[in-house]
Write a protein that binds this DNA or RNA. Sequence first.
DNA 1: ATTCCTGCAAAACATTTGCAACTAC
DNA 2: GTAGTTGCAAATGTTTTGCAGGAAT
Lengths: 149, 149
Amino acid sequence: MSINMTDLREKFRERQYKLTPQRQTILQIFVDHPDKHLSAEDVYDILRQHASDIGLATVYRTLELLSDLDILQKMEFGDGCNRYELNQNNTLHHHHHLICIACGLVKEFEDDLLETLETVIARKSNFTITDHQVKFYGYCQECQKKREG
Amino acid sequence: MSINMTDLREKFRERQYKLTPQRQTILQIFVDHPDKHLSAEDVYDILRQHASDIGLATVYRTLELLSDLDILQKMEFGDGCNRYELNQNNTLHHHHHLICIACGLVKEFEDDLLETLETVIARKSNFTITDHQVKFYGYCQECQKKREG
DNA sequence: ATTCCTGCAAAACATTTGCAACTAC
DNA sequence: GTAGTTGCAAATGTTTTGCAGGAAT
């Protein structure tokens, strides 16, 4: 759960981006909050708690940039904002999200079954598929109990 | 590609909603535009073309309502707005979306392979899964050619 | 009648952008 | 030094909400 600084600097240099303290700080937040799906506002709140004076616009710009560099993965859970999480070890993520439609809980689920599906779909559809995103909606254990009771 | 009016009235009555002309008109737009993923603004534009004076707020409220009744399916393609399509015959949709990351094209893909995956995941995760949404990102045939050239 | 619905305008959010000052390289 | 970056404030775009008048059952 850490970031290789050499690779990081290389990635930035390739695209002529500067590795500023602000960008490092924001990236560090994702390292410090593994398995969270942080929105721009979430990141901004954490920054303020740490008495940082990084502006909200910079947060947005940085999230977009880190996403472009495949350092972060951008995702939406239907709550009206974009959320991000670390793209571990530069490998494409092999986890999906289970979203509780009652309480909004988001749970991770590891799975590789979709690799096969991706191949099948690529062949049938003439698309060159580079990534996929899967969301399952339903009721978490907790909310399921409440509904039965 | 049509709507069973008896079922529709029943669905509305169950929840004590009124089947107003505005709601019928908006629903008809989805019947008239199969396989489109319309946003609230799209629907509003179509209404204006038909010289309708239904307000934008009503469009938003109706889309939310039809979505709640499982008559429409709500989805996001990362373009900053919610999009909707008819939930055909009340059955859960068995099609996924292929999204071109170059030109934004959204293509439908029919598939039932995920049914199996849903069962596996439900068992392993203690979630009661009611629906799933799958998006594949990549390059469509057209954009792929441009990239190679 | 009563409850729900509509249109309008204003408000609320999330996100983007213009710009002058600043900083990593 | 220069190109890229930042913070601020203003602008944008989508969606929600308050409210008075209106319509469906």
